[in-house]
Design a protein around this nucleic acid. Structure first.
Lengths: 146, 146
DNA sequence: AAAATAACGCAATTTTGTTGCGTTTATTTC
DNA sequence: GAAATAAACGCAACAAAATTGCGTTATTTT
């Protein structure tokens, strides 16, 4: 994925293309994901104004997921976590995101590992696969040092 | 993994070898995992006597994980889920479980996919990997039909 | 068997996520 | 561009999931 995060991205336009209402918060939310790629609900809360209600955050994330902007990343911390979709992989609510994700067990940040792909599993007898995730956990550079 | 689930497994002995106290409930819990391989907290509750307190369940699962008997399986439903460790893969709290897991989005059952392995990722610059999980989600045979 | 240690149960609390409904904001239609 | 429609928002209340402290009971060690 090539993200040109040079401050010239028209987030409102991206929302419009995906059929998402262009409210102040949702533009802000999309910007957050373009900056950090992967966020938990808590991180979104911390990075949003205190004036934004948590219900609004949950509903916006749900909407973004349905419209193909972000996808859930599995985790063992029983925390909902989302990552920005690759526009060439995800269309609408059909999410195909075969790159790995690394989750730091200390700071809880999630990192997209573009170079590490999930194996290409097509069909397994008796299982109807909707999503496939390669999840790595441990400590990121910063947390390993401390 | 070869599990000889023929009713002749000495669960108490396994607990003793791992340094886990041999209480009635913990013997029962280990048996559950040998029977089903993968369980959420809720499933453990349902399969245990109503007399067992949920706190006991949480603490026993935590203990089993620390002693290398079971490991957490990531999921997008933010539900804590555990799988039996392969004795040849996991030693103590060092969990290496490179087989995939399939989680049914309807019945929430988890299935170990012994034949589907995670790619063998050793080191990634800046990341210190503790565990690696290959997570598949969708519908199992039973839930797909309904 | 007694002492030490670990597990257990209970109650209370915290954290996380959800639902309903009236109000505000954005989008569509004219 | 204003009115009508639809969607998003905030609030309060609720529900579910997980955690903590502490006194009691069971297990392990000596």
């Amino acid at each position: 994925m090539k993200i040109q995060n040079d401050g010239n991205i028209d987030f409102a336009l991206i929302l419009a293309k995906k059929g998402v209402s262009k409210t102040k918060f949702r533009i802000h939310l999309l910007e957050l994901f373009y900056n950090k790629r992967s966020l938990s609900v808590k991180e979104v809360m911390n990075k949003s104004s205190n004036l934004i209600n948590k219900v609004t955050i949950y509903r916006a994330l749900e909407c973004f997921e349905e419209k193909g902007l972000i996808h859930k990343v599995p985790s063992i911390n029983n925390i909902i976590r989302y990552s920005l979709c690759n526009s060439d992989e995800c269309i609408g609510s059909l999410h195909k995101h075969n790159h790995g994700h690394f989750i730091c067990n200390n700071c809880n940040q999630t990192f997209c590992l573009e170079n590490y792909k999930s194996p290409d599993i097509k069909d397994i007898e008796g299982f109807y696969i909707n999503s496939l995730n390669l999840i790595l956990e441990g400590y990121c550079k910063d947390c390993h040092l401390n």
